[in-house]
């Protein structure tokens, strides 16, 4: 039910953005404006500020730099925190764990459910953009589009797994959401500011957003290493969740 609303919302957003593109592409003054903007403005519009009017630049700036990852992270963090800590807060975990299932399996199956729903949402994102591009004559490679959508959903899964791990450790959903969200905001700023603040540059690799955006998947396709870093850390956090959850008392 709630997934259906997410899918409708994301599809509508994509179609709206793509429909708006022809207007932008016919306004070269925008490119000029962006070229003259100060560095710190560019940092917050995304690395693609200079070619804002190209299809990839437009989608990067309007969607993939901030909007899409934000939506995916909200989706996954809410599911990841609900999986263990949410049920624990509602009190249904006692009933669930009275079944002959080991705790680690409960965590892994819930993580798998979160991954499957995120992948579906990623597929919605890709199809809506592909359909919109075809309808409004936006020239963008479908393979690169898929690379960007996949990177975005992996970034979401990383933060979802982080929320799952925090919930498995503390049993408190509020804490899991709060800490995961704060970490997402902090690492987003770390990555985007590192583009302009020279001192931050060496630290940008600590941000999950670096592995999502730095290789420009929308323009250059999937970067194997960056993709692997996101995937492996999401899996590691999931395994950690199972380990942490096995060891502690279930809250009343």
């Amino acid at each position: 039910m709630s997934f259906a609303w997410w899918a409708v919302g994301i599809a509508a957003l994509c179609l709206f953005l793509v429909a708006y593109y022809p207007t932008v592409s016919k306004t070269p003054a925008l490119t000029q404006f962006m070229e003259e903007a100060p560095e710190w403005v560019k940092a917050f519009v995304g690395e693609s500020a200079e070619d804002y009017t190209s299809p990839a630049g437009f989608l990067n700036g309007e969607l993939f730099f901030m909007m899409a990852p934000m939506l995916f992270i909200i989706f996954t963090v809410s599911r990841g925190s609900a999986a263990v800590a949410g049920e624990e807060g509602k009190g249904t975990l006692d009933l669930l764990l009275a079944n002959p299932i080991p705790r680690w399996r409960v965590v892994l199956e819930k993580a798998a459910a979160m991954a499957v729903s995120s992948i579906c949402l990623g597929a919605v994102l890709w199809s809506a953009l592909a359909a919109g591009a075809a309808a409004f004559g936006m020239d963008i490679g479908l393979g690169n589009l898929a690379a960007a959508c996949l990177s975005c959903l992996l970034l979401g899964l990383f933060f979802g797994a982080l929320a799952l791990a925090l919930g498995s450790l503390t049993g408190r959903r509020g804490q899991a959401v709060g800490i995961a969200a704060a970490f997402a905001v902090a690492t987003f700023f770390l990555y985007s500011l590192s583009e302009v603040v020279r001192g931050l540059k060496p630290w940008s690799r600590l941000s999950p957003f670096y592995y999502y955006l730095a290789a420009e998947p929308l323009k250059r396709g999937l970067n194997g290493i960056h993709t692997l870093v996101l995937l492996a850390s999401a899996l590691a956090l999931t395994a950690l969740s199972a380990y942490l959850f096995e060891r502690r008392d279930i809250l009343v």
Binding site: K90, G91, D94, L95, A98, V252
Partner: peptide, 11 residues
């Protein structure tokens, strides 16, 4: 085993 929790919460 069958178990009925004290503070029963259902879906």
């Amino acid at each position: 085993l069958g178990y009925l929790p004290g503070d029963l919460a259902l879906y």
